[in-house]
Write a protein that binds this DNA or RNA. Structure first.
Lengths: 192, 192
DNA sequence: CGATTCTTTGAAAACAGTCAATCTGTGTGG
DNA sequence: CCACACAGATTGACTGTTTTCAAAGAATCG
């Protein structure tokens, strides 16, 4: 199970065998069945989780009780609620598995110790954060400047892997439109 | 001019006088008149800029030619296009001054040298990035889960300082609604 | 004052949301 | 292996919201 992570991380940065061994020693594998929660509202997010296999979502309940999906994550993505993770306060989010999944997890404590011992690891983490920031900024730009149809087109371009993997009503939730509207956009789009 | 920065940074982290002197030595003050650009589409963003005084905006031109404002920034905020800054590619954004403004700027090169010499400075920067990430995630949540009226209410709550400082049509652009709609929401809202 | 820039208002058209019904495919238990 | 339940997707009719276009009213600045 650690093999997949090793392959991933060595593409991103270079680490010695010793360093990899340290990282492996601190990791905890975790399996989730479909529909199982990794995090629930009120919990404190204390882990970084790397997805070896499967598909998860991060979402939040609105005042209306509806689910609003903030992100999806599949193989070679990371998932956690960074807000609760960095503040130590209870999370407002849920994370659950859309498919049976396999994760590697590290506690915040272990993670920070690794960052101190392995500078390249800390740098990798920071680059990751910077990229996530940029991705979020682009999503905000899409939300304020695109029509619903354009958002859908961009979604398929930006995340082609999700398209065949998550149900349509969840894509609608992610995009901030109703499932009926997305369904209609899609059928219009197919007739061209 | 550096005094304002010194006050700011010492609230966020602790630095010795020597370290502060290094940071000051690498800083370049910059004044901008209202409407003047700090960055234009096609430029490469090579600086970090701290706002000592004034108000700026980061925006982008849509395919329709409309301006879409991604963020505002005032005293004690930072502004740059992080995407171009970290990739070194030409930016898709504009930054300009909404008021006569005073900035302190550091080149990427100088900044990175400071981070290497002053670990506390690097940590400060990373905390800042993490907070920006969280703020963006919350904004995405607002976009997918709130009505236009609720977005406006949240805007006033989250950024009360901007409200009396930037024109309404720019707030509309920031929220992703037309100025007419925002005007109507506002008058409805006033009648309660 | 005159010229911008900003805000408001009205009316029509486009768009998206809701509710309710139907259709489709998948998988489970008898 | 079939029937049924269930989750997901689609469609229609209706309602409500938002945009667009056009015009006019404030406010600000040189």
């Amino acid at each position: 199970m650690f093999e997949a992570f090793k392959k991933y991380i060595l593409e991103k940065t270079s680490l010695t065998d010793e360093e990899l061994a340290l990282i492996e020693a601190a990791s905890v594998p975790k399996k989730l069945r479909k529909k199982q929660y990794l995090l629930q509202e009120g919990d404190v997010s204390r882990h970084n989780s790397f997805i070896v296999k499967g598909c998860l979502r991060l979402y939040r309940l609105g005042t209306d009780g509806n689910e609003h999906i903030l992100r999806f994550a599949i193989e070679n993505w990371w998932i956690s609620d960074r807000e609760s993770y960095s503040t130590g306060l209870p999370t407002k989010y849920y994370i659950d598995a859309l498919e049976d999944s396999e994760l590697l997890t590290w506690t915040k404590q272990n993670w920070e110790a690794l960052e101190k011992k392995i500078p390249a690891f800390a740098e990798f983490r920071e680059r990751l954060l910077a990229r996530s920031f940029i991705a979020n900024q682009n999503r905000i730009n899409n939300h304020i400047s695109l029509t619903a149809e354009e958002k859908y087109q961009h979604f398929m371009q930006d995340y082609p892997d999700f398209y065949n993997r998550v149900p349509l009503h969840m894509i609608a939730s992610f995009l901030g439109v109703s499932r009926e509207t997305l369904s209609r956009i899609r059928s219009q789009y197919a007739h061209k």
